[in-house]
Structure formats: structure tokens, C-alpha cells
């Protein structure tokens, strides 16, 4: 079972940031909002995806304690946009301001779950984390301004700042096969 964690503070936003990911996975998933997340949810999952939320919704930043389990998590984990920022913050990164909205070009220096070379990706963020300052992580792709794809050096913990559910759906399918 794949656990999908919503970071949205408005239920209506889950149709935009969570449902597209559920549709790509298709079956054997459970969705929970981070506010209702329990240790039992985490323990029963084979892998976890933490979804993004809207540009204006930063409520999750005030409740990072809900995500402290990430540091010890050993199964596959993917953070998308807000999810990637959460991973970075848990590992000691600092949040920085940079807006990117719409299709942007991202350069994958090394293959990242099927993505390589120059790819168009959909961005929707006002903030990002500079992962080059976090020794546990390797940066796989950058846009002009931000780290776009990162992986933990020893664990299957992945982060993407862009929204793969829009133009890179195969990427999510590849993660589910890990």
C-alpha cells in the first residue's frame, strides 16, 4: 500500500494536488491529511508520497513536528513541492524565496527515475530549499534558480520541486515500482 500524505489546509485543494496523484497510482493507496497522520499510517505503508499544495498555503510550515519521522524513515519516500521542502527542512535545510510558475526547463545531469537530459516540468512555488547545503542529499536536476530534483545519498528518499503529476506522470509510476 502506498500512503499519500496531503499537505493542503483546504479540502478543495486536494482535488488539484492529491487526486491527480491518486489517479496516476490507480490502486492500493491510502490518502491522509498530515494533520490526521499517525504512526500506524506510516508503519503500514510500503512507500509514501507527500504532495504539494497551493502557492498561498504554507500552513504545513508551522507544523513540521508532524514530519519528524522522515529522518528515520527507511522505505521509499517522495516529496513533491511542499513535500520536498518538508524533507529539506527535516534534514536541516533553510527555506528560501523564489517564485517559479508554469512550464520551465529543468536539466537532469543524471538519470532520475527515468528523467534525464533537458525536460519541461510544471512549477508552482514561491519557496525552495538549497539542497547543496544538506550533505545527506545529492542534487540531480536544477532549473535556472532552484534545485528541482534531489535524492538522499543512502536512502530511497526523493524530492522534486516541480509537479510531476502535470507533465511527467511516468516519473510517479516509476517511483511506485521501487
Amino acid at each position: 500500500m502506498i500512503l499519500i500524505i496531503s499537505t493542503c489546509s483546504e479540502t478543495l485543494h486536494e482535488l488539484e494536488f492529491v487526486k491527480p496523484i491518486e489517479d496516476i497510482i490507480g490502486k492500493e493507496f491510502k490518502t491522509v491529511n498530515y494533520k490526521d497522520l499517525t504512526q500506524k499510517h506510516i508503519d503500514s505503508a510500503e512507500k509514501i508520497i507527500i504532495c504539494g499544495t497551493s502557492l498561498k498555503d504554507n500552513t504545513f510550515l508551522k507544523e513540521l513536528g508532524k514530519f519528524s519521522w522522515i529522518k528515520e524513515y527507511s522505505k521509499p519516500l517522495l516529496g513533491i513541492c511542499a513535500g520536498m521542502q518538508i524533507i529539506g527542512l527535516v534534514f536541516g535545510g533553510k527555506i528560501k524565496k523564489k517564485k517559479e510558475i508554469g512550464l520551465i526547463v529543468s536539466n537532469f545531469d543524471k538519470t532520475f527515475l527515468g528523467l534525464d537530459g533537458v525536460k519541461q516540468v510544471y512549477a508552482l512555488h514561491n519557496n525552495f530549499i538549497d539542497f547543496s547545503k544538506i550533505p545527506e542529499f545529492e542534487v540531480f536536476a536544477k532549473s535556472l534558480s532552484c534545485d528541482q530534483a534531489v535524492k538522499h545519498r543512502a536512502k530511497k528518499i526523493y524530492g522534486v520541486l516541480f509537479h510531476p503529476e502535470v507533465r511527467n506522470k511516468e516519473f510517479i509510476k516509476k517511483f511506485c515500482l521501487l
Binding site: 483546504e10 478543495l12 485543494h13 482535488l15 488539484e16 487526486k19 491527480p20 489517479d23 497551493s54 502557492l55 498561498k56 498555503d57 517564485k99 510558475i101 508554469g102 508552482l124 514561491n126 503529476e165 502535470v166
Partner: peptide
Amino acid sequence: QEICNKLNIECFNPLWQ
């Protein structure tokens, strides 16, 4: 999204994808 971000209001797209 750009306009809403500039005007500091929420933007909901419930049919997205």
C-alpha cells in the same frame, strides 16, 4: 496563478488533471 499570487489570494482549480 500568477495573477492570484500577485494579488495575494487563493487560486482553486478543482478539475485540474
